[in-house]
Amino acid sequence: MSPMLPRVLPSPDGKPLPPQETAEAFRTFARDLAAGRRLWAAAEAGFIGRLFDELAADWDTAQATGRDDPLRDALDRGGPLLDGPCLEVGSGTGQFTPLLISAFPAVVSIDLSQQMLRQAAGRSPARVRADASALPVADASLAAVAAIDMLLFPAETARVLAPGGLLLWINQLGQDGPLYLPAEDVVDALPGCWTAVGAEAGWGSWAVLRRG
């Protein structure tokens, strides 16, 4: 892991903190899944899909942070970016898709939740309901995978990235986020040799990881 870059986007007041017990349970699950200590099967996928279907209608107003500081900073300072397609995994209601579209020539958004994808109409022009543990994407075909507050599926992420491709790993609330996984753990989980650069930005943090 490369040294963290200095912060350039300050953390504003009013950071929305999720319930501590719930957040810690999700963080434990995320760590165990990335490290291979927990399996991802139909039961887990069904639970997550149903949960976010239920949250979709009021996600933007009641759940989402609405801040793009970590992603903006990652795109500004985490490059160089490859000129190729980007896959946005766990895209939700598409709040951050327009920013990705400004950086990549093509962006495809996938999510387990059909209701989330419906809410993303108008933001995400290419939307596919899919499980990130089995991406409907050819080997070595992507310039980037963008994972914003998302579970990590290391082998599948590595499979679809082209040589020199990068993983945009974004935690909107940093260590307080329910799916927070530090960049060091992401590097350890990914197969092969990877380099990373990252920083804190706004309420959150980011890392850009590139296959070495």
Rank of each mutant, 00 (worst) to 15 (best):
P6Y: 02
V8P: 00
P10R: 09
P10L: 00
S11N: 15
P12V: 00
G14H: 09
G14T: 06
P16W: 00
P18Q: 06
P18M: 10
T22G: 15
A23M: 11
A23L: 07
A23K: 11
E24D: 15
F26Q: 13
F29M: 14
A30V: 14
A30F: 08
L33G: 08
A34M: 14
A35L: 14
G36E: 13
G36R: 13
R38Y: 13
L39M: 14
L39I: 12
L39N: 14
A43Y: 00
E44Q: 15
E44Y: 06
E44D: 14
F47P: 07
G49L: 09
F52H: 13
D53A: 03
L55W: 14
A56V: 03
A57G: 13
W59A: 02
W59I: 01
D60G: 02
D60M: 04
A62I: 03
T65R: 09
G66M: 10
R67H: 07
R67C: 00
R72V: 10
D73K: 04
D73R: 04
A74H: 11
L75D: 02
R77L: 06
G78V: 01
G79T: 08
P80L: 09
L81T: 04
L81S: 01
L82C: 12
D83T: 05
G84Q: 03
C86I: 12
E88K: 03
G90L: 10
G90K: 05
S91F: 01
S91D: 10
T93E: 13
G94I: 05
F96V: 12
T97C: 15
P98S: 12
L99V: 09
L100H: 14
P105F: 06
V108T: 15
S109T: 06
D111L: 03
L112N: 03
L112M: 07
Q114F: 04
M116Y: 01
M116S: 02
L117S: 09
R118N: 13
A120I: 14
A120W: 14
S124Q: 10
S124D: 03
A126T: 03
A126F: 02
V128T: 11
R129M: 12
R129K: 11
A132H: 00
S133Y: 08
L135N: 05
L135W: 07
P136C: 14
D139G: 08
A140Y: 01
A140E: 05
A143V: 09
A143Q: 12
A146D: 11
A146P: 11
A146T: 10
I148P: 02
I148L: 08
I148M: 02
M150K: 03
M150E: 15
L152E: 13
F153E: 10
P154I: 01
T157G: 07
T157Y: 08
V160C: 04
V160L: 02
L166A: 13
L167T: 06
L168Y: 08
W169E: 03
I170Y: 08
I170D: 03
I170P: 02
I170Q: 02
L173R: 10
G174W: 12
G177K: 01
G177Y: 06
P178R: 13
L179A: 02
Y180S: 06
L181Q: 12
V187N: 01
V187Y: 01
D188V: 05
D188P: 12
L190C: 08
P191L: 10
P191Q: 05
C193G: 13
T195A: 00
G198T: 06
A199D: 14
A199P: 09
A199K: 05
W203P: 12
G204E: 09
S205G: 12
W206L: 04
R210G: 11
